[in-house]
Design a protein around this nucleic acid. Sequence first.
DNA 1: GCCGTTTTCGGCCCGACTGTTTTCAGTCG
Length: 574
Amino acid sequence: MNNADVAAALDEIAELLELRNESTFRIRAYQNASKALTGITEDVRVLADSGRLVDVKGVGKGIAERIEELLSTGKIGYLDDLRREFPAGVRSLLAVPGIGPSLARRAYLELGVQSLEDLKLAAESGRLAELPGLGEKSAQNVLRALGRVSKREHRISIGKAMPLVEELIADLQAVQSLPNLMPAGSLRRWSPTIGDIDLMATSSDPAAVMDAFVNLPQVRQILGHGATKSSVVTDNGLQVDLRIVEEAAFGSLIQHFTGSRDHNIELREYALNMGLSLNEYGITAASTGAVRMFTDEREFYRALGLAWIEPELREAQGEIRAARDGTLPHLVGVEDVRGDLHVHSDWSDGAVPIESMITAAEDRGYAYVAITDHSGGIGVANGLSPDRLIEQMGLVRQLAERHPRIRVLCGSEVDIRRDGTLDFPDEILAQLDWVVASVHSGFNQTEEQMTARIIRAMENPHVDALGHPTGRLIGKREPYAVDLEQVFRAAARTHTALEINSFPERLDLSDRHARRAIELGATLVVDTDAHAPAHLDNIRYGIAMARRAWATADDVLNAYSFDALQAWLRNGEP
DNA sequence: GCCGTTTTCGGCCCGACTGTTTTCAGTCG
């Protein structure tokens, strides 16, 4: 029973309350509590044992009692009662876009619908259209919605979405000059996964822009083609919307469409307390009805008494309060990165020779780079034996002399074995400048085993960083069970840097986890885990996660100068 | 059901679109 399990139970209560047509505020309370538990790394059991559940914002006395019941008895009586009212199949209807709680409830209570299949039959037979308030069009919409369920396109990683959008923007700019053209939505917030793309622009000739947009070569399907908004699907299945507004409202427009939804909700609640109402067209004073418009998003926030909030922070995680108090962090940027400390070559599973990777790092203007090929335990990755590692060290030191503009560190990505020992003996590790330790096998260990295993590895004095700390592959593999609170505390204690791995399908640590790691005093290292020169460019995704984790340059080891890095390696301080 | 730099009670984001109705409910983002 972990945080995700508790959150799932609260979400289920919320959905069943929706079906029951309960107060939207009670429903939202359960949804908020669920989201709050998902976003923290502290174990819900620990919080419950110490009576601190109600300290979580969004969890009050009532929901805390439900959680405690779930933890102590394995079930929630209230949830069981709700489940008796609505079979599980009715809940599954809610997952269909276009079908809400009202339709699901009525289809069940008035037509006996208990599954997607039942609903399809009811719509086809005309029984659905006979319900008061519904009609033939509603039934057709339900059938279309059901038809889309099976072939629903999934969210894609930001690593796939960002290059595609950059290409789209360049192609569109080539046809129509659009000085304000920019992405909004989850892409602008550098969210790890992207559902669809929202592009925003201003133009004196919107019709021409829209024509150019829907006729771009990568457009596979045109969903809508209007004067101010068009939607297309590109050849890799991504939906892209383009909106054009007059320049006078551009500031509030991009604010609105950048979101996140939760950020906007909190911002509007905050504004309401000041007697102001917010929407995409501007700020309305409740007392006079006067609307103030904004060309500039910074002015929009300033009008609310807030510092401008970086898009990466707009997740309703305390950024509005910080903007009011003037305590927003100065976020680390890609320009702060001085080196990459996790890079592979063709000595293990990389694509190119060591020198090519050194040159690539040099070309990026880095001050240092660490060559970190796999250890022998990774059979599939052509891991290095102790003898090969010693041979490689000799070569790396030679190459380092040939490249005086960049400091080249002899490193290793050493495998953490199941018992927490490392794949190289200490006397070998002691000769290296930089050691990343990572888990690559035995993912099914219990949380206790995995936590002890990782902490034991971090306690080895030769280990400098923990690679991809949770092992997740977005959309492919869940993180292994591990108590991150303990890992983060151990990282702070042992001066082991925690990696944010920049590979788009890893992004591990996640933003939330990385933020908690910083809170607990740990230092991050943002690496690319590059297996080819082009992978060094992925650093922007890792840095984006660090920014979403509220990290400053002081929190990121490879934003340090080479001397500060060496000092940190010696005594844990720059 | 939760919450508080105007509140421990009385609030709780906002608008577009659709389909069904003549003023609104449902759904979505």
